Amino acid sequence: MRVVEVIAYGGPEVLRMARRPEPEAGDVPGRVRVSMKAAGVNQADLRIRAGRYADAVGALKPPFILGTDFAGKLLDPVPGMAAGTRVAGFVPWYQELTGEGTYTEVLRVAPDWIAPMPDDLEFTVAASLPLAAATAQQGLGRIALPAGATLLVTGGSAVVGRLAIQYAHAAGMRVVAVAHEGDESELRVLGADHVVTRGAPEDVVAKVLAGDPDRVDAVFDGALVGDALLPVLKDGGVFLALAPDRVPTAERDIRVETIRATPDAVALRESLQKVADGELITRVADVLPLAEAAEAHRRAEAGHRPGRIILMI
């Protein structure tokens, strides 16, 4: 089968197409196979490939396969889902550290990582959702703000941020979003009460404080800004960091939380249905073939268009 491997730490050029033996049914106890149709390209993929997390992955060394989000068809039955069922989910890549990611034609997964897809949902759309939805939902759970509190969401134009906006709005929070210019109206429809355009951290802080001079109750740092956002937080506020190299040093009794999402098949099934029903909005920025994974990484790093880049397989 075809896979895309990281052959060494470095730029997108270290992503190479290769061939590996296709997994066989039952070759790993507790795992089933998925015939891949689409895989999401996440910010964590870019950082792992660049070697930023080399110490965190321990003994795992290149060559390995990146990728967490996926959508495809079951090759092996699981309780409640027959072979051929259209499924989506994400691989907890960091927890597993096997180097078996989703940039592949056939993927081994645990049954509790996957949820069935609604019949009318496209594979590309489904592959944009699993990790982002879990990160947004579980991250907001860590923040634990009551209804009426004010939440700042950075990266509001990207998938994780826009999902956090929607879930926070549904929970009754007042949401301030930092987003690309031109997305203001759309994000207000999705639930943002106030939108400021992205820019240098000091400019973003000034814009947020201009609208909320008493500062915000919590920050959901989807854009991985880090310490520079602390001035917008109230004393005793909450900062949620999504990357281990963007965790600020706590001050003024600010509570700093980190999130590494874990699969939740029940929550994912609900989110997939809401996307199919138009009640939850994700964003696909680009769709490229698996062979162009390096170009997908270049585009993601350039930030040429907010949203999830999807590899078609």
Rank of each mutant, 00 (worst) to 15 (best):
P77S: 00
T262L: 13
S35M: 15
L290I: 12
V196F: 04
V91T: 09
V91I: 12
H180W: 15
D277P: 15
L75Y: 04
W113D: 03
A38W: 06
A25P: 06
I310N: 01
R283Y: 09
V3R: 01
L140V: 03
V196A: 02
V205K: 10
R2W: 06
G148T: 07
E24V: 08
E292K: 10
A8I: 06
R298V: 09
A250P: 14
V284I: 11
K61Q: 11
T85W: 02
V195H: 00
D235L: 13
E301L: 01
E301Q: 02
I310Q: 02
I65H: 04
L131D: 11
A132I: 00
R188H: 08
L121Y: 01
A276L: 12
S271N: 11
V247I: 10
R246V: 06
P29A: 02
Q273I: 10
R108P: 06
R174H: 13
D214E: 12
R305S: 05
L131C: 10
E202R: 12
F70I: 09
F90K: 03
F239A: 08
Q137E: 12
P63S: 08
G89W: 12
L272G: 06
Q166D: 00
P213E: 01
V287E: 14
P79C: 03
G30N: 09
T68W: 13
D253K: 15
R260H: 14
R246W: 08
G101E: 13
I114T: 01
T85A: 01
L66T: 09
Y167D: 10
G40Q: 10
K274N: 08
I309L: 12
A71W: 04
I313T: 15
W113V: 07
E96L: 07
F123S: 09
V153H: 00
A71C: 04
I259F: 01
D183P: 12
L60Q: 05
V78Q: 07
T102D: 09
L229T: 02
L240D: 00
